[in-house]
């Protein structure tokens, strides 16, 4: 079984993200693996360990992604591809999906595992669009993957009203939830091994496509402006006579906050 896993580099959302003139201030930011992709990597590695699957990882854009790809290697991924091209600065989910389609077609994979969404944009579309482009079955928000035989997998998906069990014929695309597993923290052995491995870095031309073909020239969506969420205001504290305070609070709620 050949598995293709996606990995996006995202800004560490634990940090305060500052916006200036409609753009994100880069200073002081740090970038990490998208958390859901970490789950996808872990799921792939588990299939490698338990079912002897061959694992390949693809990361798109982001400039220098060496750190996160090495980390995925250290977790157990075998091959890594990084597609980077100046044309990708404004790429959206459709562009990513097109590139993934190209990679998929070159490699003939049995299963594509992606995180169900990325922490930075929270769109949750890439995996599903990819399935559409490839004409493959797709299940999203997957919380477990079980290999039935060479051609079939059984996945469970967290739906609105309970867990859905779905049998899929391979090849297929699944997007995974963060409750599918607890990603391992790569330690010594993995990290030492990862240092020796190479990453296949390609631009669009090397991949055998072009900016136009993947839709990079005219993305279907474009981020026009970033707006920082309004900072939460501190509460007000009232002290003194209870009757007096109650009257004041009612007055403030009615006239200032206009809740009734």
């Amino acid at each position: 079984m050949k598995i293709l896993t996606t990995l996006k580099k995202v800004v560490d959302v634990e940090l305060n993200i500052k916006v200036k003139n409609g753009a994100i201030v880069e200073e002081g930011l740090q970038y990490v693996m998208n958390a859901w992709d970490e789950n996808a990597v872990e799921a792939s590695v588990q299939l490698k360990e338990n079912k002897g699957a061959e694992t390949t990882l693809i990361s798109i854009g982001g400039g220098d992604n060496t750190d996160i790809i090495r980390k995925a290697y250290a977790m157990g991924i075998e091959n890594g591809i990084h597609i980077d091209d100046p044309a990708l600065t404004k790429a959206d989910s459709f562009v990513y999906a097109r590139i993934l389609q190209k990679v998929y077609e070159k490699g003939k994979y049995d299963l594509v595992i992606t995180g169900k969404q990325a922490q930075d944009t929270d769109n949750g579309q890439t995996g599903i669009i990819l399935a559409q482009y490839l004409g493959l079955p797709c299940v999203s928000n997957v919380i477990s993957i079980e290999v039935m035989d060479e051609q079939h997998i059984k996945v469970s998906r967290l739906g609105d009203v309970g867990t859905e069990i779905v049998e899929l014929e391979l090849p297929a695309v699944v997007t995974v939830s963060d409750s599918i597993n607890q990603p391992r923290l790569p330690v010594l052995r993995g990290i030492m091994m990862a240092k020796k491995k190479t990453i296949k870095v390609m631009d669009l031309a090397t991949l055998g496509t072009s900016k136009d073909e993947v839709g990079g020239a005219a993305p279907k969506s474009e981020i026009v402006e970033f707006i920082a969420p309004e900072a939460r205001k501190g509460g007000q504290k009232f002290e003194g006579d209870v009757a007096e305070i109650t009257a004041r609070v009612v007055d403030l709620l009615a006239n200032e906050a206009k809740v009734f």
Binding site: D12, E14, L15, N16, G28, Q30
Partner: peptide, 8 residues
């Protein structure tokens, strides 16, 4: 260890 953003 809490993983809170270092900038805070």
């Amino acid at each position: 260890p809490w993983g809170i953003g270092y900038d805070k």
